[in-house]
């Protein structure tokens, strides 16, 4: 065997072996995750606030009804109500979990409560006797109440909101309100036997108090007079009951109406006997530019105040459920004077 031949063979083998030895491993890829463009609107910056002059006026002033209420199925041409009638359904924003005012009945699936019955009256005034079947319910959170009224129905907004919503000056800058249809007040829910008899005890104890974002209740409890309280902020008011049941909050602050619904869901809790520390006049929310709708809804409220229907609704949701002791109070009186 001569040397050049040996060299050739050797080189070939070297080449082969070098190739064979540097096999690269293939590897598993990372988990996939598709990216979907978000369709949620960005959060608005600082909400507008009323000037001192604006605040001096009674916030419950609404737009007076114009003459007689139009007959059902005969809405004035070109009005907001006519557009709703043409669409065939009234799109409403309600609470799905505020027992007694707006809550889904898990057995029937229906949303029911004081707020819902008021909305049914509005729907009947537009569509006639079967109007309560022409309501499209959109369950919304506290924080969504104003944004949903600032969004057109076609884009996911609503025609009207009935969601234990307090009428106040700052909100009037963004939406319109009907006249006051229920007088509520802010108070606190505590554990039975906790010894707390009012909000002052909670301040003294530096207790953790839960309230939902975007509510007047959370604004109130953050005022300097309640300094010491640790505010637990949650997205929805029902999350407050969860927090309290999980021991993450010592108390919940909210409207007496809402808290009565909580006490009904959790027998270990009670609303303190102390009188409510704020007045929370409830109004139906309506888009700011729909003043014709505001005066129409005020006409409907006038009607049910006068014909006893308001008291029937009160009886059904607040007396029959033992949430509040009788007697049935008189309905709150409307205040008008705002430009239509």
């Amino acid at each position: 065997m001569n040397a050049p031949r040996i060299h050739r063979i050797a080189l070939t083998i070297v080449a082969l072996m070098t190739l064979g030895s540097c096999a690269t491993g293939s590897s598993l890829n990372r988990a996939v995750r598709a990216t979907v463009e978000s369709t949620t609107a960005p959060v608005t910056a600082t909400p507008p606030a009323c000037t001192a002059d604006q605040r001096a006026e009674d916030p419950t002033r609404s737009v007076a009804p114009r003459g007689d209420l139009p007959t059902a199925n005969a809405m004035p041409a070109g009005s907001t109500m006519a557009a709703i009638h043409d669409r065939g359904r009234l799109v409403v924003g309600v609470s799905g979990d505020t027992l007694l005012f707006g809550a889904r009945n898990p057995l029937s699936g229906a949303i029911e409560g004081f707020d819902i019955d008021i909305l049914k009256e509005v729907a009947k005034a537009i569509f006639g006797a079967d109007g309560d079947n022409k309501i499209e319910y959109r369950v919304i959170t506290y924080a969504q109440r104003l944004p949903k009224l600032e969004t057109p129905v076609e884009s996911g907004g609503v025609d009207i909101v009935a969601h234990t919503m307090t009428i106040n000056c700052n909100r009037w800058l963004r939406i319109a309100f009907s006249s006051n249809y229920y007088d509520a007040g802010q108070t606190v829910l505590v554990r039975k036997g906790s010894g707390y008899t009012g909000v002052e005890d909670l301040v003294a104890a530096k207790a953790r108090v839960c309230a939902p974002s975007g509510s007047t209740n959370i604004d109130e409890i953050r005022k300097p007079i309640y300094d010491g309280i640790e505010v637990v902020e949650v997205p929805d008011v029902s999350d407050c009951l969860v927090s309290m049941q999980q021991g993450k909050a010592d108390a919940i602050t909210g409207d007496d109406t809402v808290l009565a619904g909580f006490a009904a869901q959790d027998p270990t809790t009670e609303v303190v006997a102390q009188k409510a520390f704020t007045a929370e006049p409830y109004g139906l929310g309506i888009p700011l530019q729909h003043t014709d709708m505001v005066s129409f809804v005020n006409g409907v409220l006038e009607k049910i105040r006068g014909n006893g229907r308001w008291k029937e609704i009160y009886q059904r949701w607040l007396i029959d459920t033992n949430a509040l002791p009788p007697p049935i109070p008189d309905p709150p009186q409307p205040v008008y004077g705002r430009d239509g």
Binding site: A34, T35, I111, E136, Y137, V139, T141
Partner: peptide
């Protein structure tokens, strides 16, 4: 469950299904 206001959850559904699609395609 969050009746009529499923927007956030519907967006989650779309996200989940887009991921399912992408993974199935690959």
């Amino acid at each position: 469950i969050n009746r009529g206001n499923g927007a956030a959850f519907e967006a989650n559904w779309q996200q989940a299904m887009a991921t399912a699609d992408l993974a199935a395609d690959q």
